[in-house]
Design a binder for these strands. Sequence first.
RNA 1: GGCGCUGUAGCUCAGUUGGUUAGAGCGCCGCCCUGUCACGGCGGAGGUCGUGGGUUCGAGCCCCAUCAGCGUCGCCA
Length: 685
Amino acid sequence: MPGRAARGPKRKDDARRAIHGSLLSQASRFCRALAAGNDAALARPTFAAAADARPVARARRASEPLETRTRYRAAISLHFGHERCPRRTRGAPMTATPERFSCGALRADAIGRTAELFGWINRRRDHGGLIFIDLRDREGVTQIVFNPEHPSFPMAEKLRSEDVVRVVGAVRARPEGTENAKLATGAVEVGIEQLEVLNRSEVPPFQVNAEDDVDESLRLEYRYLDLRRPRMQRNIRLRHRIVKAFRDYFDERDFVEIETPMFIKSTPEGARDYLVPSRMNPGTFYALPQSPQLLKQICMISGFGRYMQIARCMRDEDLRADRQPEFTQLDVELSFVTQEEVMQMMEGAVAHAWRNVLGIDLSAFPRLTHAEALRRFGSDKPDMRFGLELVDASARFVTSEFVVFRGALDAGGAVLALRYPGGASLSRRDFDALTESAKLFGAKGMVWIALGADGVKSSAQRFLDDATVEALRADTGAERGDAVLLFADARESVSSIAGKMRLEIGERCGLRDPAKFSFCWVTEFPYLEMDEESGKPVPAHHPFSAPMPGQWDLIDSDPLAMRAQHYDMVLNGFELGSGSIRIHDVELQKRIFTMLGMSEEEIEDRFGFFVRALRYGAPPHGGMALGIDRIVMLACGEENLRQVIAFPKNQVGRDVMMDAPSPVPERLLRDLYLRSVAPSAESAR
RNA sequence: GGCGCUGUAGCUCAGUUGGUUAGAGCGCCGCCCUGUCACGGCGGAGGUCGUGGGUUCGAGCCCCAUCAGCGUCGCCA
């Protein structure tokens, strides 16, 4: 017995190492190809062939600024997707013969064996006297051949796309010259022996076997068909492996995954809550968690020391491409840690996932302070994939006669300059359009300077002397053929405008490469910010973060100058998540609440349970939460979260497959002591 | 709540200055085809041009309103 116990784990370790090793070698091949820009190795051959046959589709794709995104997706598909050689062949043989195979598993070495395959009809090629079927399952596609002499031939003539069948047949080499190099299983085919139709499919509303873009609400309505397609199979599987990598990483470091409740107390701060009425407690409501923030802090007070959870969170706010009403966080909290230790731990987790899932070794994340991020990039979530940093050109215009700039400067504002590589080739009309997009970001205007080969042109020519132009050129690092854009306004708004224009320029210049991953940390966030509505200071994030050491004294003298022990992880211009060292001192916590304008009673009512917990030996602690959906979205090269969530909501929070939310019978409302006052379908009629 | 884009066949899309019977590719249906693999060939069915109103001799096209989808600003401690 002791012997067996000792052998078990060891075997498991060996297996893990073996899998690990094979992944790493796959991954490094992938990375080498990416780095070498080896399109031949990266592009899906079927995709390339499709593009040739469809000039219209090809032209549309070529006109996309992010054509590289498609290339990247195709590349990861090769390694994680539908046509990948299966990592594990599931399902050992049920009997001696036939052996069960997945549709992506058959290779030359299976020739001569009898295979049993289950799958969907991907495509039927009927030659009258000979029928080929591409049978598809989650692993790939295998060609089945029906000869007219075989009794199943008439059945094969009736097979249609998405019918579900069981097939038994002999694995054999394809006749010489008919091998298909585009297919992993292209060397072999299965000669039919038995065909069993397990289920029929109606004609699907869109083609499951094509990579075409289909209207997204139709995809959502028939999500099960959409999920059958290689792209979504790949995304959801990649998601699983990233989540598993996180769980493994934290498990190896003695973290405990603790499930926190979905029905909790509404703490009316921050986002709008989703509410759940309580039948057993008339007139009262649970809230669904916006995050397990207080619960994970209480886990620290409970002495768990190292907590993690793949946590579902819900926020009832308007949606965006990168915001769903329910989403998933990698939630982490540790006791007795410094900010530095939390950051190292989280950076390690992400590096672990990238190495093990994507096969990419990340170097240490650069760090910048909040102030620095705003100054250099005009954003607290800078896209560090490219330079084109903002340049403060205020000093160049202090004596300028240009009223617009002088006005902004005299009012304490700033003039910011931005290099536009290759921008000199733009026409006046192009610059006008660019100015319009700047105005959409809130700019009052934009001055452009084109450093063309035939001289300098500008929208503010007569206010710019040669020395100023030369100075701006030197400041921004612009070269002949580039343009320099100038914006002037109050410091905060001009920074944000120029920051958004920087992204626009980066996009136009193809610098936002989805295959490039530029992580960074942003630190030293302001503790408080001025709420424009109320004119009162409010926490820039949440009221449980601790200020930077030694800054408590500022709370009375200069509260807005306080910095928090708060840090954000940023990837390619997306905020992946934030964390902080928390307040563990009950008096300090109450002082924050009080400063936010809460009375003693309100504190007790909303946070009494938490304040009480802090009194009983709460350890110093801190942590972080990362948005899994966004991480997976970027890892998949996708542009919106719906592509990495199996069953997402649309922009108004509807599940169009289930048709939720929906009205409920009056009786259910009565049980909950509820009455709807919404303008109902009835009253509308 | 504001702004922008989109809405034409089952799907993806064209549709000229407002002018006869609204087109293409894919899919679907039928027939033919023994080495295809986005098979091929021939034939066919399929349309409330999102909806309502207006202008006009005449509207897919112009105007107004409205609905839906997406994007975005506000919002998201």
